[in-house]
Design a protein around this nucleic acid. Structure first.
Lengths: 344, 344
DNA sequence: ACACAGTGCTCACACGTGTCACTGACACGT
DNA sequence: ACGTGTCAGTGACACGTGTGAGCACTGTGT
């Protein structure tokens, strides 16, 4: 990175940022009093007239406390860091993350998303550690090594939590059972008589953390039923889908779980263009229960995924912070159920 | 908010967070030397053996500098704050934001997203100001009042930038010409002979900042051509679409610009179910050029939107920070063009 | 012998905040 | 007069860092 140049960033002199000392001066009291008043400290008693004078002075100057100074003094920051994923997340996660943030703020945490694009895992961990967050909640475990966790904990983080598919040493690993998604999809296909079942694996990077476990789940479901599972790599474009459809009959497939509804729609169109009838010749099922899937003919069957509430997760985080030495959290983060429509 | 309780958050004593003083002690030098070495300060000369000893000591202790202390001393933070929008953003913006963040980091800024869910504008501005960001870049101007801008600037922010549809006093307002989207869509419909043109307005909250200007743009395009524009409120569900389609012939519409591809797909299906042929009886055009739109029959026409590069915007921000007194930035952030397929 | 410059490092302050320990002032009971 | 207690507030330190001023030492020129 470039060196911090710092070319005399003086403000225009007359407009210095007001501090609590300025407030104290204007109100004619000591700085300590200002601190007590503005923080509503209950242990010290300040008369009502003084309180008012302080508040008015703060208002007049437009005083805003300096978070860095505050947390420096306090020794901690009540800040929860969310490494921003480079994963392309759908509306499901957006909604979940919004709720989660809102709930954390209710618990008086400051939520900060901090990107790590183009950094190695350990480098990123160090950058996060500089902010001295009280907790780190990572979507996926890809950007966290055991060493990175160690760095974070040593820098004062009381909880490191991953929302992923596997456990990571030293973290509270909340497992999203992606495997269940593949499992219920495959089970549904098997129960409706399909025998050679394709599972679409997106070739787009960053999705492996979801697609891998879903494939495994499908395999588990097929085990011992006589059905076989065939992984099908697919890029999210028409040409790739056409190519896959062209060799469909050679593969002798009669059912497919297509990772999610978008890939399912793409593939179903290609199959139909190839003259393969859905669901008679091949059943298709997606995941996420997008509205758009209901607009196709046949209507797309799907796996609906119910995420845990953001509020619940926020409470788990809060507990992990308050009692860092308790056993690692354990909670299934999502639930899956088949929504059968017409394509399967 | 609840009071900060601070119930003796002592770490297990043996594991205190290491500071530069610890590093100095271990390396047998002064704290100043440590600072000089770890920051590669060129003005002071430190011998190579000493440098090595310091680096090794830092490594051994797992020392990570304390960002709060650093920026407290420095008086500024090179932190760019991105208020997280409560707007449901599509893949277009996700991509753009990723690029933008990456580019800012290249310029040695620290990018932090900070939510303001459930806060009033002024309250949120105050919370942001506590972090003393050097710049604030807001997607949309909804969560920024003139007063909020004043608070931020007074707290040391050298640039407040909005990516929106209108100017805000005191900010560098980068205008996304949403109007153009509606304009090119309507122009296209008019040129292909349509006379009564519907414009879908999503009823979902948070989208007004886009839908309003798009409607206005469509109106501009129709002006003086003899065509009329009819706003059509629509919720993103099948029932609402069915209801709209049911009164379609009464409205006597022969063309529709449907806000984006998702609403367009929803509406087109409802029209077809109602027995209205597309494009013969009614032309349909969306926006965003989603892949899924190409899967329908007829294939969906759309307005492709080319966003400005994240890197360019990052450079604008950098310039605004370095020279805060220059004229407000001005730059059109997006470009629109019609992609004609089969539905229009 | 002295001035002077260069090298390698340290001292001590400042940044803005929270809070512990303490101080006057006044009231009350004896 | 004295001890005790409450009220309303203040003084001073600590948090971790960056940096200008300065110090001890060595070499070099006159």
């Amino acid at each position: 990175m470039s060196q911090s140049t710092d070319q005399s960033p003086e403000r225009p002199a007359g407009r210095a940022v007001p501090t609590s000392a300025d407030v104290a001066r204007l109100a004619g009291v000591s700085r300590a009093t200002v601190s007590y008043v503005l923080n509503n400290t209950s242990a010290v008693r300040i008369s009502e007239p003084t309180r008012r004078r302080v508040r008015e002075a703060a208002e007049e100057l437009g005083y805003v406390p300096h978070a860095a100074a505050r947390s420096l003094r306090a020794g901690h920051s009540r800040m929860v860091l969310l490494p921003t994923a480079h994963v392309p997340v759908g509306p499901l996660y957006s909604q979940f993350f919004n709720d989660f943030q809102w709930a954390l703020r209710r618990l008086d945490y400051t939520v900060v998303q901090y990107g790590s694009v183009g950094m190695r895992a350990e480098e990123a961990a160090r950058a996060w550690a500089e902010l001295r967050p009280v907790a780190v909640v990572s979507l996926g475990e890809a950007e966290l090594t055991a060493q990175g966790v160690e760095i974070l904990k040593r820098s004062g983080a009381r909880a490191v939590i991953t929302l992923g598919t596997q456990n990571v040493e030293g973290t509270h690993a909340l497992v999203m059972e992606q495997g269940r998604v593949g499992e219920v999809a495959a089970t549904h296909l098997v129960e409706t008589g399909r025998r050679r079942i394709g599972v679409v694996i997106p070739e787009e990077p960053g999705l492996d953390m979801f697609s891998g476990p879903r494939l495994e789940g499908a395999r588990r479901a097929a085990e011992g039923t006589g059905a076989t599972v065939v992984p099908l790599p697919l890029r999210y474009d028409e040409e790739s889908a056409r190519a896959l459809a062209a060799r469909w009959r050679d593969e002798d497939l009669d059912g497919v779980f297509a990772y999610n509804d978008e890939y399912a729609m793409l593939l179903m169109r290609a199959l139909q263009d190839e003259g393969i009838s859905v669901p008679e010749e091949t059943a298709v099922i997606g995941a996420d229960d997008l509205l758009l899937g209901r607009l196709l003919r046949p209507r797309l069957s799907t796996v609906a995924i119910d995420m845990v509430l953001g509020r619940e997760l926020a409470e788990l985080v809060d507990r992990a912070v308050r009692e860092p030495d308790t056993a690692p959290l354990s909670r299934s983060l999502l639930d899956s159920r088949v929504v059968r429509r017409e394509s399967s």
